[in-house]
Write a protein that binds this DNA or RNA. Sequence first.
DNA 1: AGTTAAAAACAGACCGGTTGGTATGGTGGA
DNA 2: TCCACCATACCAACCGGTCTGTTTTTAACT
Lengths: 183, 183
Amino acid sequence: MDTKSLIIEIATNLFQQKGYKGVGLNEIIKACNISKGSLYHHFPNGKEELLIACLQLLNEEITKDIVEIFERYPTTREAAEAMISKLVENFEAEGTLTGYTFSSIVSEMASLSEPVRNACAQLYQKIQAIYMEKLLADGFTKDKANAIALMMTASIEGAMLLCLTQKEAEPLKIISQLLPKML
Amino acid sequence: MDTKSLIIEIATNLFQQKGYKGVGLNEIIKACNISKGSLYHHFPNGKEELLIACLQLLNEEITKDIVEIFERYPTTREAAEAMISKLVENFEAEGTLTGYTFSSIVSEMASLSEPVRNACAQLYQKIQAIYMEKLLADGFTKDKANAIALMMTASIEGAMLLCLTQKEAEPLKIISQLLPKML
DNA sequence: AGTTAAAAACAGACCGGTTGGTATGGTGGA
DNA sequence: TCCACCATACCAACCGGTCTGTTTTTAACT
């Protein structure tokens, strides 16, 4: 794999775990086994440029995962349940939700730059669009589909936060049970 | 006001805005107009001890706010709608939700210590307990009340994250509209 | 194919500034 | 006299970022 992709991949992981400010460049180059010169060759504008590249990668990865599940199941309800149970499995096995949420970055966003905020917004937007498409196929009106898709995004993201703070998978499970009520 | 309370109050604000790693001790003592010696006199175990004190203050403040609203309205539905519309007002007026969410701290938590995680968990727990009490008064069973309270906490927290990334109050508004469906 | 120059990729020393934290000494009131 | 309270100077470690120089790859021309 080329160096640039390697940097992005490893940095993405670190950013998800510790947040933007929580990871230093030295930590990144050590994990990648590269030098600082190399990093700044691929990302001349430094750390924040790297972060945005990471968010774009995350965008593709998360989206791909969700799309796959939503194609496999006939209705939004079944797809959502399958998706959440996958999250729960992952959380109970590894004790983390890295790879599925990036709230650690989003919440720092306020003190970061506009491009970062934009990259985050796009990510949420894309996820919501997947939900919405399925909801429209289910026969919901445009307005309803939009509202429900947003509710799904918000509650799942919030539930992941709760799971991480409580060290329990219960919040995600309960959300999953309650979802049908909204549909 | 005594120095210790002053430190906690100002630091709380800063932590909420920029997250734990995003605020330095120098920034704090400058904002408080005190010296480092003074800070370490009141918080001998340093930054993290201060953070936990801040989380406890937040606990009281947020809780007080929510309790007030939930006492003023007869049902969970009305109280929740009032609470969210207050959030929306605040967001549209000031462009921020500081004072109502602390996700910036929660999401960094993974890389912080156990006591910090605990303080965060207690905060969510307390909020949820307020919702739950009201739901029980509304006549829900214990199980249902617990599930709905969790859903409320998660979706509102998630919606706040969405509002901040999109710079729009729409997510909170839509959550508010959809809430009655769960009740 | 062989030569050469340019460009891309990488390495690592180095920069000023900041980090959280400590040690010491002073000051005011009980 | 004592002690909570505060101020200052200082520390090693680390921060993001720049610099110069070396290696490796690519491309062009004979």
